[in-house]
């Protein structure tokens, strides 16, 4: 046990990470996206730019959407993190309604932007179960999608709002 273990709760599972210089150790320079992908093997979180400019790496930190490429893992000590892998029901494998709606609407082309977008929508719905179209677009405005799947994404999100009504369209 090193002197400064960092504890993360990722998708309801607890990880105690040793801080140090040996291979596999958590280093103070590691970003959350790096730790998730390289140390914990949760590669569903994508890195498009690694500089906070594209939204691909979005995860939930204590329920809030954050760019995991901009956060140091050591800052997340004791925090709860949800990634795309944590959305489906761990027992049944049943997908989150947002995930299902993305499938139904064909809301992706290459799909590299998809996990990040879904996480932002998840956070939006948690705080606002019947967002307006404007609110949906704002929640997604930091997500780069070069294939231009935007229109199908909006359809998918509209199709999965927890409480219908209240849209401006």
């Amino acid at each position: 046990m090193s002197e400064h273990p960092v504890t993360l709760v990722v998708n309801n599972r607890r990880y105690d990470l040793e801080v140090g210089g040996r291979p596999g150790d958590l280093q103070p320079t590691h970003t959350l996206s790096y730790t998730l992908r390289e140390t914990l093997g949760l590669t569903g979180t994508k890195i498009g730019c690694d500089k906070g400019e594209c939204g691909a790496c979005t995860v939930l930190l204590e329920g809030e959407p954050v760019l995991s490429c901009l956060i140091l893992t050591v800052e997340c000590h004791g925090k709860k993190i949800t990634t795309i892998e944590g959305l489906e029901d761990p027992q049944t494998g049943k997908l989150d309604p947002i995930q299902q709606s993305f499938i139904d609407s064909g809301a992706f082309q290459c799909g590299f932007c998809t996990p990040g977008m879904i996480m932002s929508v998840k956070a939006l719905f948690a705080g606002n179960p019947s967002p307006t179209g404007q609110e949906i677009r704002e929640a997604l405005s930091g997500h780069y999608c070069r294939c231009m799947s935007h229109y199908h994404v909006l359809e998918a999100v509209a199709g999965s709002v927890p409480k219908a009504g209240g849209t401006d369209e």
Binding site: Q99, I103, I118
Partner: peptide, 19 residues
């Protein structure tokens, strides 16, 4: 018909080169 890789994409299971 949903794309064959649809579930993989929305679950973050599709394997891109960096994965």
């Amino acid at each position: 018909v949903p794309r064959k890789d649809a579930a993989d994409l929305v679950r973050g299971k599709a394997q891109f080169i960096d994965d």
